[in-house]
Design a protein around this nucleic acid. Structure first.
Lengths: 246, 246
DNA sequence: CTTGACAACCTGTAAGACAAGTTTCATCAT
DNA sequence: ATGATGAAACTTGTCTTACAGGTTGTCAAG
């Protein structure tokens, strides 16, 4: 190894060799760049085939690939549409990866701890007065919902969403939402265990108060502890849940 | 808003209605469960079609979808193989999602500071001996490339990639890579300013040494300073670069 | 035993056909 | 004039056939 070989890094993404993947890549770029908006209807398969100078099966394979990734959605007779591009949908392919390795759950919690702690710290710095009071309200409301798992989960989503919003960082918000939706099924099971919601409600209050007091470090630490608690109960559920998988 | 609407969470995944997605789902489960190992060769498209009682185009669409997700890989004439299931490949949907919105420079740098610092800390804990020595090598090599912007950028990418890999967290690796590629065009311009690369090379050495010494906090702080330096020079370039944007 | 050509096989692409569902629009009845 | 009805056009879903381009394995000649 004499020096860095420039050629290996010069082509970071190997451009798909086969036609259908090139077509898929092109469509994906059109969507990512905003030329085709979410929910918009795509041209018909025949039109795309004509425009791209390929056969219809090639277009179909490309669309099917995008469909499996949750980017587009085809309705028989109706046409092909870009989905709402919701994180929940787009993160679903990643659940395959989570099935592959049992320790991947740890990766997600480590990521969540890092990012959510940072977000909480930023929220303590940047939140508006309205957001601070609303957070306190939500946290107090949570204490009354510890016996209502469904209601608490909705409130929990609002609480975390509001903190992400208050942090003023759209990118971290995206990442945090992705993590949240990846773990949401496990969270649903965990929230039915006794004591879990009581702990979460207490955590929420600590976080909300730290943000209210503009204590950046305090908010970070409180959020870190919160994620720790969630990790503990969730990994427990994950272990138990193996045997009663359908 | 009276109460939480439970129905939105009641149907987490809709099972694929079309044949090709059912086929894809089935193959994916075979791979996730280990019945088909990584690197293994799949039956030919015709065999799969016969076995699954569908036509070849259906099988092809399914395989193409899995191929776009990085789960399988087809070679013309050679057959279809399961990939090595490398996390880097499987996390690709995440980078597409992060490309969707346009983020401000400040958001990206704040995110990068948070995530790369965390990654550096993890790398100091989890890196193998080989990775530590290789990092030192790369950092030292960088000092000799401060007059070669192109070469330095290649090495810089390798350096950051190796740290992400050493952290052992595929999710954060993917996020970090996305951040890196989102800012790469500005970085190209910045790396041609005098002094920038000298600073970066020094930063790299500090980071590599902290990771070598398994100093988690030190690596985090060194990376944080590094991102700060990059932010300073890059934002300068961004201001200047506005007028000669194509 | 090595080497080279050939045959069998596999994926890549194209084109055509029909089924099933949706949308649109014109027609008919009110 | 307006609303409902139904047919026609369009779109996706699937199957079939065909051939080109590439790989792999075999077998015979050297």
């Amino acid at each position: 190894m004499t020096g860095p070989d420039a050629f290996s890094a010069l082509v970071p993404i190997t451009q798909p060799r086969v036609a259908s993947e090139r077509v898929g890549e092109q469509l994906r770029m059109l969507i990512a760049s905003g030329n085709i908006a979410a929910g918009e209807k795509l041209p018909s398969e025949n039109e795309l085939a004509r425009a791209l100078q390929v056969s219809r099966p090639v277009v179909r394979e490309a669309l099917r690939g995008l469909s499996m990734m949750g980017i587009v959605e085809s309705r028989q007779g109706g046409g092909c549409f870009v989905t709402d591009l919701d994180p929940k949908r787009l993160m679903e392919p990643l659940s395959f990866y989570l099935q592959l390795r049992d320790y991947s759950m740890d990766e997600l919690f480590r990521a969540r701890q890092l990012i959510d702690s940072g977000i909480a710290g930023d929220a303590a710095r940047n939140a508006t007065a309205d957001q601070r009071t609303r957070l306190i309200e939500l946290a107090r409301l949570g204490k009354e919902l510890v016996d209502d798992p469904v209601g608490f989960r909705v409130l929990d989503a609002q609480f975390h969403g509001l903190i992400s919003e208050a942090s003023g960082n759209a990118f971290l918000l995206s990442v945090s939402n992705s993590l949240y939706s990846l773990a949401i099924d496990l969270r649903r099971k965990a929230s039915e265990m006794p004591g879990v919601l009581t702990q979460s409600a207490a955590d929420h209050i600590a976080i909300a108060e730290a943000i209210r007091d503009a204590s950046s470090d305090g908010a970070s630490r409180a959020m870190g502890r919160h994620v720790d608690h969630i990790r503990a109960t969730t990994s427990l559920v994950a272990k138990i849940g193996i045997r009663d998988a359908s």
